[in-house]
Design a protein around this nucleic acid. Structure first.
Lengths: 367, 367
DNA sequence: AAACACTTTGCACACGCTTGCAAGGCGGGC
DNA sequence: GCCCGCCTTGCAAGCGTGTGCAAAGTGTTT
């Protein structure tokens, strides 16, 4: 036992020396010195080997209850926390998942991010958030960052990565999830809604309400889901023998909605039913229709949106819309990332199609 | 030179062998194997030492232009990206900053997060996002996660950490920023607004508009900034010799705003001016006042909010409010985290007070 | 030609952790 | 009493990187 004690003492001195050297590495700048407790120190205090400490914090490893108790006690006392950078290095699994997104402050985006981060946390992962803008290489830069931090996966909510960089990710063993982007990349999970069918159901509702002159208000971003809604709406209208007035303008914002109202409601044949590709557009559209054109909704004009953002339920809008199943989307993504899924199943589940539920409120007559 | 070549060949074999072992570590599960390119492989291809590769990607290190060229070329060809986990391990500086936040999907919160992630990215850092809920140890758990990933800093937007865990962070060399939380923790950066003074300016505006019966609508969350607004409003009203009707209810949500309207507008002495502690509350309040009590704003009722969320500018609300200087807040936080600030300056700047600008719109008479 | 300063490069150790391997301890069945 | 198997533990190799140190190379001055 005495020998062990001496050994422990020696170990302690070594650890202490290392800390000193570490903190002096940058000259005298003490503020720089990050001095975290290491497993070695815990081991010394608990009187066990460093491996025992490691095993204590590794689920499924073999440690006796007695050793575990001693280790946990020492760790608690010293404020020890496993270094996930080092663990990630060894395990080849960082626990990091990158969320790549633009227009983060938008209601729909932020609620999706909330659901994703929450469910990732529950699954023992952690979210890194990377902002992109409209510029070209933006998503690629974000993916590069994901690679640098050896993220286990990246979830792309906006934009599309370059083929080559996406392939680099996959080759490196990183998983890729694309939400609402239609890409043909092999090996990625693609989550989409039944936008086309949903748009068709809007036509039905408009027709039931007795509307004759349909219109579609879109942004000119031309993302796959927006275009799918447009196509679905057009096709269903054609099936009912109805023409559709289409306008596209700007991003999917409230302001664009106002502009689109300006464009559509000043047409010779004023529409009596408008499907806005997005709730934000719909809110802007509604406000313009009411306050600038003094139209009453739904008596003179029926309006539908898409996303079911919180504002759609506010009494000033009371908008009939489609709910984005954000929780289900997040669940699909996170469970696909989970390790319990074997590779054949993962392969076969590379594309998921979720249902957008119609949320009936007061902006369409009848119901 | 021949000797060198042989050595390179040997190195290559070793690296290759390692990769094989690595990919076989988990039985035959090939999907698991993360096979990233390492600096060693780049070095072999470029015909230089591994340190040269390292130095090439370390700003300020000494490498000849010729070597750099060869390295960059090889790295490009192989798709090499520096492993930030390993770099963080060595440098004691991960580049990670944790954002700890609840109610992430709320307009004000999400716009602050957007500003923060953006500016962190510009400063060469990267944001980790951790969701908290109302439960007690939630923030502590988040900070533990920040410690595990050896984050350079944590920015807390909601809730307050336990004293002991905050101290552990600081002792470990992690930086702590508290936004809109009044805490006495030494060594942290505290960013606050002039809530009290702002609330006073609302009173002035209400008095100028000829309002007599003031009211304050608050959530019952009792966070420091909310209480500061309440106090400021009360004090200023008292200075004008006016009483204030106060109601507190629920979280800072749209729904709570409606309930608060219910409570305040059914009072015997119906208020003719209401300051809502938050824009979300104000939106709910406005909708209830208009649609349930058929009041016209601002003719019969003046309303003010706080935060200047996007919806406040929508024509249905057109709310007079105070802007949260999110970009300035983010800038303060990020520049404080930056390494160029020396420790005395950082110490002396441990508390920042920013100005909330009054945004005049149509929910108060006059202006 | 020698001495010098300066830049560049490779070696080797360190960062904190995981895990295969072998050795030790222990109880049960013969 | 011995052997076998099981559980636990320590050893040591390794993950991919940064960096101090010394050696090598280059250009300048005496």
């Amino acid at each position: 036992m005495i020998v062990v004690r001496i050994a422990n003492g020696a170990l302690h001195s070594i650890a202490f020396l290392c800390k000193l050297m570490c903190s002096n590495r940058h000259g005298g700048d003490m503020a720089q010195g990050k001095i975290y407790v290491s497993a070695l120190e815990v081991a010394e205090r608990a009187g066990v080997s460093r491996s025992a400490v490691s095993r204590t914090f590794t689920p499924g490893a073999s440690v006796s209850p007695e050793t575990r108790r001693k280790v946990v006690e020492a760790a608690e006392a010293l404020g020890y926390h496993v270094n996930h950078l080092a663990r990630g290095l060894m395990r080849n699994e960082s626990g990091i998942v990158c969320l790549i997104v633009s227009d983060l402050a938008t209601p729909y985006r932020s609620s999706l991010i909330k659901a994703l981060t929450q469910q990732l946390q529950n699954a023992g992962k952690i979210a890194m958030l990377i902002n992109t803008d409209r510029s070209d290489g933006s998503v690629d830069l974000a993916l590069r960052q994901a690679i640098r931090y050896r993220a286990d996966a990246s979830i792309i909510l906006s934009g599309l990565p370059d083929k080559s960089i996406a392939e680099l990710c996959l080759k490196s063993g990183q998983r890729l999830v694309l939400i609402n982007r239609n890409d043909e990349q092999e090996g990625t999970l693609k989550i989409n809604l039944d936008d086309r069918e949903a748009a068709g159901r809007v036509v039905t509702a408009f027709v039931r309400a007795g509307c004759k002159r349909l219109a579609f208000a879109n942004s000119d971003a031309r993302t796959p889901s927006l275009m799918a809604r447009e196509e679905g709406f057009l096709n269903a209208a054609k099936a009912h023998g109805l023409e559709v007035a289409i306008e596209r303008f700007g991003g999917t914002t409230y302001e664009s909605g106002k502009v689109l109202a300006q464009k559509l409601m000043t047409r010779e044949e004023r529409p009596d039913a408008v499907f806005c590709a997005t709730d934000l557009l719909a809110c802007g559209f509604l406000d313009a229709a009411r306050h600038q054109f003094s139209l009453s909704v739904p008596e003179e004009l029926c309006v539908a949106g898409f996303d079911d953002i919180e504002q759609a339920s506010w009494s000033s809008y009371n908008l009939t819309t489609f709910s984005q199943p954000v929780e289900a989307i997040a669940q699909e993504a996170v469970s696909w990332l989970g390790d319990e899924m074997d590779s054949e199943l993962r392969q076969s589940r590379s594309s998921r199609r979720l249902h957008a539920e119609l949320v009936w409120r007061g902006s369409i007559r009848g119901g």
